[in-house]
Design a protein around this nucleic acid. Structure first.
Length: 504
RNA sequence: GGUCCGGUGGCCGAGUGGUCAGGCACAGGUCUGCAAAACCUGCUACGGCGGUUCAAUUCCGCCCCGGACCUCCA
C-alpha cells in the first residue's frame, strides 16, 4: 500500500501530503478529556477519529507514538468537588476509569501514552520559566501571562488578527494584563483550590500550558500531527502553539493540525438546558451492539463535517453491521493462490483513507466487497458491481470476505466473532500494536454466559423441531415454531447448509 | 458585528468541468414449501440568481439558509 497520505491541515487550510519528520517514527498528539463528568457523544468523536488515524498510520509506518492526555486539574473539576464534596482525586480517578471503559466500548485502542496534567507540573513550570527568560511571558500579581504581542505569528492557526479577536471579545480585561490578548500560563490558587509550589507562589497552571508540556515531554519540541475538536482551534490550540514555538524557538509546533467537526443531536447543539445532552453511556445502554454501531455511525460521516446524531441513524448503523456480520458468518477461508488479489482488494477499500480519511467512501467500498462475497457464497451476479468499480476480480468464496476483514480492521470495525454478534453477543476484540496485544470490548455489561448458553440451547432445540416438521412437510407446525421464535426476537434463515438463527 | 465552514434525490452521505458514488426507505423481479437472507432492476439529485466555458452540481460573483468559533467547550 502506498504511504501517500493527504491530510487537511488547519494551519495551511489545504490538504497537505503527510511527510513524517522521522519516517521511522510518527508522532501524534491529541487533546484528551477534562475528567469531571461522563464522556458525552462529542467527546467520543475525536477519540474514534484519531483511533482510526493511529490504526492507519500503524499500517503505513514502522512505528507510531500516539499520545492523548488526561486533564485532571481544571476549575470545572474543582467546582464539581466543592459542589458534591467528593475529593478532586476521587472525581478524576473515577471519571478517568469511566472514560477508559466507554472508549474501549467504542473499539478505540488506548493511546501509547496518556500523560496526566497533575504529573506534568514540573515541565509546565520549566516551560513557563523559559518563556519568561525569552521575553514571551511575564509575572504579575501572582499570575504569569503569555505576551501575545511578543509573537508575531499569533493568530495564524485560527486565521484571525489580534484586533479581530479583541473586537469580538466578551470578557473583561484583567488589570494585570499588559495587553488585552495576553493569556494565563500560571495563576494563584486559594487554599481550597488545588495548587503547587512554583517560583510565583502556590498556584495552578492555565488551561493551555499542559498540552505544550505534555506533548514536549512525550514527543519532543516539534512533532508530526496535533489533533482535537474544531472548537479547540481558538483559543486552546492557538495558545498552545504560541507557547511551544516561543519556548523552543521553532517554526512549528506540529506540522499538521487536524480538527474534527462538531456533533449535534437532533439538529441542535448538545446542551443540558435543551435536554438533548447525551453521554456515551446513554448510547451503550441501548444494547450490546450500540458501541460498535456508534463507532460506525461516526465513521459514516467525514471527520471534518459536522454530524447530526439521531437514534434512527444509530439503528441504521446497527443494521449495516448486522449485514456485514451475516456475510462474515457465511464466509469460508479462501483457497490458496489468491493472496495478491486479496491484498489488492483490501488496499482498494482502504485507499480512500489516504485522501484525508475519506471513511464514507471506504465504507462504501467495504459494502462492495460484501456484495462480491455474498455472490460467491450465496449466489447471484457480481457483474454489475464489478463493472461499476472497474475490477475483474475472481468471485471466489471467502476471498472478498478476507479482504473485507482486513480492511475493516483498519477502521476498527467487525472485530467480533460474527456468529456471536448475530446472536446478540458482540465479543471482545483484540489488536496487536507494536507487538503488544490490546483488548477492546464492544459492550459495557456482559450478560451471564450461562444464561445465554441455556437460552441458545432452547432455541437450537426449537430449530431442530421445526426442521423435523419441515422434513415431514408439516409446514403449519414449522411456521408456528418460526413465528413463536420471531415473537422472541429470533429470526431464522434457511440455507443449503441448514437453518441459522440470529437475534434481531 | 468579525472570522470560518457548509447547503447533493423521501432520509443519510461521497464525489466530479463532460458516460456510475454508495447506503436506508420504497416499488418490481430471481431464488424459496412459505418466509428470511442474498442477488438483479427501477427511483436519475446537486439552495437561488448571474458570470466564465463548447460544456458547471463541480470554477467565479452576489443573495438566501444552516452551523462553528470570537478567551468554559471534543
Amino acid at each position: 500500500m502506498t504511504t501517500d497520505l493527504l491530510l487537511h491541515n488547519s494551519l495551511t487550510r489545504a490538504k497537505d501530503r503527510f511527510a513524517p519528520i522521522d519516517p521511522g517514527h510518527v508522532r501524534l498528539y491529541v487533546c484528551g478529556p477534562t475528567v469531571y463528568d461522563l464522556a458525552h457523544l462529542g467527546n467520543a468523536r475525536p477519540v474514534v477519529v484519531f483511533d482510526l488515524l493511529a490504526r492507519l498510520l500503524r499500517r503505513l509506518f514502522p512505528r507510531v507514538t500516539y499520545v492523548r492526555n488526561i486533564t485532571d486539574v481544571e476549575d470545572k473539576i474543582t467546582a464539581r468537588s466543592l459542589e458534591t464534596g467528593e475529593p478532586i482525586a476521587a472525581i478524576t480517578a473515577r471519571t478517568t476509569a469511566d472514560f477508559h471503559r466507554d472508549m474501549a466500548a467504542l473499539g478505540a485502542l488506548p493511546p501509547d501514552e496518556e500523560p496526566r496534567a497533575t504529573d506534568s507540573i514540573a515541565p509546565m513550570i520549566q516551560l513557563i520559566e523559559r518563556l519568561i527568560a525569552n521575553g514571551h511571558a511575564y509575572a504579575a500579581e501572582g499570575h504569569v501571562l503569555f505576551s501575545v504581542p511578543s509573537f508575531p505569528d499569533y493568530g495564524q492557526l485560527s486565521g484571525r488578527s489580534t484586533e479581530e479577536m479583541l473586537a469580538g471579545a466578551r470578557i473583561e480585561v484583567a488589570p494585570y494584563k499588559r495587553d488585552p490578548g495576553d493569556f494565563v500560563l500560571w495563576k494563584p490558587s486559594t487554599p481550597e483550590q488545588p495548587g503547587w509550589d512554583s517560583p510565583w507562589g502556590r498556584g495552578r497552571p492555565g488551561w493551555h500550558i499542559e498540552c505544550s508540556a505534555m506533548s514536549w515531554r512525550a514527543l519532543g519540541e516539534v512533532f508530526d500531527i496535533h489533533g482535537g475538536g474544531h472548537d479547540l482551534i481558538f483559543p486552546h490550540h492557538e495558545n498552545e502553539l504560541a507557547q511551544s514555538r516561543c519556548a523552543f524557538g521553532t517554526p512549528r509546533m506540529a506540522n499538521i493540525w487536524l480538527h474534527n467537526g462538531m456533533l449535534r443531536v437532533d439538529g441542535e447543539k448538545m446542551s443540558k438546558s435543551l435536554g438533548n445532552f447525551l453521554t456515551v453511556r446513554d448510547i451503550l445502554a441501548r444494547g450490546a451492539w450500540a458501541g460498535e454501531a456508534f463507532r460506525l455511525l461516526l465513521l459514516r460521516t467525514h471527520y471534518r463535517a459536522d454530524l447530526d446524531f439521531t437514534f434512527a441513524g444509530l439503528e441504521e448503523a446497527k443494521a449495516e453491521l448486522d449485514d456485514h456480520y451475516a456475510m462474515l458468518a457465511r464466509a469460508v477461508e479462501p483457497a490458496d493462490g489468491h493472496e495478491t488479489v486479496l491484498a489488492e482488494m483490501a488496499d482498494w477499500a482502504l485507499a480512500p483513507l489516504l485522501d484525508d480519511l475519506n471513511t464514507p467512501l471506504a465504507l462504501a467500498r467495504l459494502r462492495d466487497l460484501r456484495t462480491i462475497e455474498n455472490v460467491a457464497s450465496v449466489g447471484g451476479s457480481a457483474t454489475a458491481v464489478l463493472h461499476r468499480i472497474g475490477k475483474s476480480w475472481p468471485v471466489v468464496a471467502g476471498l472478498a470476505a478476507a479482504a473485507f476483514r482486513e480492511a475493516a480492521g483498519v477502521l476498527g470495525l467487525c472485530r467480533s466473532e460474527p456468529r456471536e454478534w448475530l446472536r446478540g453477543r458482540p465479543s471482545a476484540g483484540s489488536a496487536t500494536v507494536d507487538g503488544q496485544t490490546l483488548t477492546t470490548t464492544w459492550h459495557l455489561d456482559t450478560a451471564s454466559p450461562a444464561a445465554f448458553a441455556s437460552e441458545d440451547a432452547e432455541i437450537d432445540r426449537a430449530v431442530d423441531q421445526r426442521l423435523a416438521a419441515r422434513k415431514a412437510r408439516n409446514f403449519a407446525e414449522a411456521d408456528r415454531i418460526r413465528d413463536e421464535l420471531k415473537a422472541k426476537g429470533i429470526v431464522l434463515e434457511d440455507g443449503p447448509q441448514g437453518t441459522s438463527w440470529r437475534r434481531a
